[in-house]
Simulated scan of single mutants.
Amino acid sequence: MSFEEDDSVILHDEHSDFDGETGTITNKMETMFGDANYIVSFEDGKEQGVPEDNLEPAEEDDEAEKDD
């Protein structure tokens, strides 16, 4: 799955201070091998060079409210 700027994501990286936290994609970069790396902003900072495999989409609370 590919992510775009302003997408909400959950980071899964046991070596990161932000492991398990929800953040927002602020930038997408492609490596010379064609893989995507992301910069993810969190409330207390940001994580750079995050591979796509370490991210999952965050559930949007707004969508649940629209269904009512």
Rank of each mutant, 00 (worst) to 15 (best):
D6I: 01
D6H: 13
S8R: 15
D67M: 08
G49H: 12
I39D: 10
V9A: 10
F42E: 05
T24S: 08
T22P: 00
D61P: 15
S2Y: 04
N27K: 12
P57T: 06
E47S: 13
T31F: 11
L55N: 06
K66M: 12
N54A: 15
D68H: 14
F42N: 05
M32S: 14
P57Q: 02
E65Q: 11
M1G: 14
E59G: 13
E14Y: 07
S16E: 02
P51F: 11
S16T: 03
A64N: 14
P57R: 09
P57L: 07
N27C: 12
M1W: 04
A64M: 08
E60D: 15
H15T: 10
D35H: 10
V9C: 06
D68I: 13
S41Y: 05
H12M: 03
D6Q: 13
D7W: 02
M32T: 05
D67R: 12
L55S: 01
D19L: 01
S2I: 08
T31D: 10
A58C: 06
D19T: 00
N54D: 12
D7M: 04
F42H: 07
D68A: 07
E59Y: 07
S8E: 08
F18A: 09
F3D: 02
E21I: 00
D35A: 12
V40Y: 03
D53C: 11
L11N: 01
G45Q: 08
T22H: 01
D53M: 12
G34R: 00
E65A: 10
N27R: 11
G49K: 07
A36W: 03
V9P: 06
D35K: 12
I10Q: 07
K46C: 05
V40N: 02
D67W: 03
K66Y: 06
S8C: 11
E5R: 15
S16M: 02
S8H: 07
E63K: 07
F33S: 14
F33D: 14
D44C: 03
S8K: 15
E63H: 09
Q48D: 05
V40I: 09
I10M: 14
F18C: 04
E5C: 06
L11D: 02
E43T: 15
E5F: 01
S41R: 10
A36I: 03
D13P: 04
E59W: 03
D35V: 02
E30S: 14
E63A: 13
G49I: 08
K66L: 11
L11P: 00
Q48Y: 14
N27E: 09
N37Q: 14
V9I: 14
D61E: 13
V50I: 13
D53I: 02
T26F: 11
D17N: 09
N54V: 00
L11A: 08
T24L: 04
S16R: 03
E5N: 11
D62T: 09
I39R: 05
K66P: 04
G45E: 05
M29K: 10
Q48C: 10
I39Q: 09
